[in-house]
Nucleic acid binder design. Structure first.
Lengths: 364, 364
DNA sequence: AGTAAATTTGTGTGCGCACACAATAAAACA
DNA sequence: TGTTTTATTGTGTGCGCACACAAATTTACT
């Protein structure tokens, strides 16, 4: 009844060798006779051994360093949340002698990224977590990491060609499709939809383009009435032509809804919607930032898609740490569900958020 | 820089006593002189010691038994998922010498519950996880557990007066409100709404009543047009009056939407909607059961609220096991977020679901 | 004081694993 | 055959904690 998990010791006894030999077989350390190897492997096949990760971690004395590269959190609540996640992971992993250091950069300055990344490299990290939002700038860095054989994990934005250990985040195309669905829902008749990008360089931001594509595709497939989709892009906060174009869009009587592609932009767009008294227009944006929450509560925003930056960062760290300490193989892609927040389930998310820190040791 | 966590050994050295004494102080085992006690406590205050839970678990040789009480999973996909969660937790916790046994009962038979619960008790469990869906029948059982000082955790349905170690699940009133919001969304004009309960004894099922109340309250507060809410209750699959009433409801031209209060009912209701060709009617139900997923995909169902029975069961087990092994104090209430599933974010949930097993050791 | 009893304190062991190192066996050489 | 080298195998130690037990100290009692 009380079936105990098999230990190295059990394997050793069954195979008629010492635990040292089993250990060598398990870790491919060589120096094992063919005969012993065969016998151990036979026992191994029959008994399906899983190492006790707990015990494994206790013994290892080695120190590990993980560098986290992400946009500066001071002026951006979204990255602030990611940063929070990293801060939460820190003390948890300290018990395992994993030291986490964040390196932040200005997302609008390629040079800033280069600086941060070279700093990170200089610290000789054993693993790197990175939010590769600057598509073009990150490639040389990946190359560098690969040369040094430093494992790295991406979060927030996926770059498939990067050959990263793992990507953690959402499927942004389907995120856009979901936004499309939420925008159309219950609506009928001819009209216009708006897609807003705020303060981002679209050439360097594939993630936002993916969202827009998803949005457009969904509406094209599923909205059965004649319609147009207007895409507006604010390049900076002093971009007055944007303001004018937006004012014009908002004044259209047949405007059905607005989709904003980023969390920061959501706040800005909501502000304008409120300003122009367009509360009734359907609006979908991103993330549980403080202001977005307020706009959701008072009905300006109808839906927020929750990207969980905090959890993404935490799981990124967990993935790396598990890989380093426990040699656990990482999932190549860890896609978060696309969570829909409305005024009525908001509280349930906020209440739940604080809690789940977590080190996640799962016994394969 | 590399700040190591303090260990018992460190405390001992700082206080000028042996680790045995520190151990006695930490566990209130007594047999410590006032003098030593004071010195150890002083050091403890200054250094904020957190036990290394990993190491703690290694040392303890004790075996623990957890009994899980839930409705039979064979004829019910919802409880099937909960059962799956328990099955997933089993091997994970085996490493810590925690043995989990499920005791199932027929949710329509009070006697069956009594039988299962007494069986569970006979096994002398160290902790019990229970889905208390039979409001009246569970009370004597709680009393029994309390007398024997066996900690227990509720999931799925909360019974506040139970004095359980923890409740894991959702706020059902707000779940109903959310359903209301999703049902109204984008709708205008006078009309009717339907609330459907299927195959449940409402007198013994406060959880469904809570949902209906939430639904009614939301619509009363937020739907600005004249409306009526019709509540239908199918007592059994051979209840023909229900079928007639439902057919009548569905034929109303001003029917705005349908809310079904349970996952099993969702499937049934969707079937009728399809049968009567009422695809366009807004419908909100519960859970990612196979058939519900199909109805969501083909547009009969518009929204599913995800109760995550699997995760609830897992977290329930985790809560108990952490409490038993690590003496971690449990959160009194662990409310899951109310997750909204649509045709467009469905896949992201399904893809994500398989993965997260988990033992969750968090270092306080 | 001398012994017994009670109180307080310190030490040793094991949990399962990784890894260093010692011990043994086998092969190579003189 | 003896000695060295090399291949193989076994043993010991520590990780941090809990807990059992032994040792040291204090207190009670004759």
């Amino acid at each position: 009844m009380a079936k105990k998990p098999v230990r190295i010791k059990d394997i050793a006894k069954a195979a008629g060798v010492s635990i040292g030999t089993v250990d060598r077989v398990l870790h491919n350390r060589g120096n094992v006779s063919e005969d012993a190897l065969k016998r151990v492997n036979e026992v191994l096949d029959k008994n399906e051994y899983h190492p006790n990760l707990i015990a494994r971690s206790l013994g290892s004395k080695r120190d590990y360093k993980i560098a986290a590269l992400l946009p500066n959190h001071l002026n951006d609540d979204y990255w602030g949340l990611a940063y929070q996640g990293i801060e939460l992971a820190k003390p948890e992993w300290l018990h395992y002698s994993v030291h986490i250091v964040a390196y932040e950069f200005d997302p609008d300055l390629a040079s800033s990224f280069q600086e941060a990344s070279s700093k990170a490299l200089k610290s000789k990290p054993d693993g790197v977590l990175i939010a590769p939002i600057l598509y073009n700038e990150t490639f040389p860095f990946f190359k560098n990491l690969a040369d040094k054989a430093i494992p790295f994990v991406l979060f927030n934005t996926n770059i498939i060609e990067s050959n990263a250990l793992s990507f953690i985040g959402q499927d942004l195309y389907h995120s856009g499709r979901l936004a499309g669905e939420l925008t159309c829902l219950g609506q009928t008749g001819e009209g216009q939809f708006g897609v807003l990008h705020v303060d981002e360089d679209l050439n360097d931001s594939i993630h936002l383009v993916q969202k827009e594509n998803g949005f457009r595709d969904f509406i094209a497939e599923r909205y059965p009435f004649t319609h147009t989709i207007v895409s507006l892009n604010r390049t900076s906060s002093s971009d007055f032509s944007f303001k004018k174009k937006l004012a014009n869009l908002l004044s259209q009587p047949d405007l059905k809804g607005i989709f904003v592609s980023s969390s920061r932009g959501t706040e800005t767009a909501a502000y304008f919607l409120k300003e122009y008294g367009k509360k009734e227009i359907r609006m979908v944006g991103y993330d549980l930032l403080e202001k977005n929450i307020a706009y959701l509560k008072n009905g300006i925003i109808d839906f927020l898609i929750h990207q969980k930056p905090q959890q993404q960062a935490i799981e990124g760290i967990n993935c790396l740490a598990n890989h380093l300490i426990f040699k656990k193989e990482a999932k190549r892609v860890n896609l978060f569900p696309l969570e829909v927040i409305t005024s009525q389930n908001l509280e349930s998310y906020i209440a739940n958020q604080a809690e789940h820190t977590v080190i996640n040791i799962s016994v394969k």
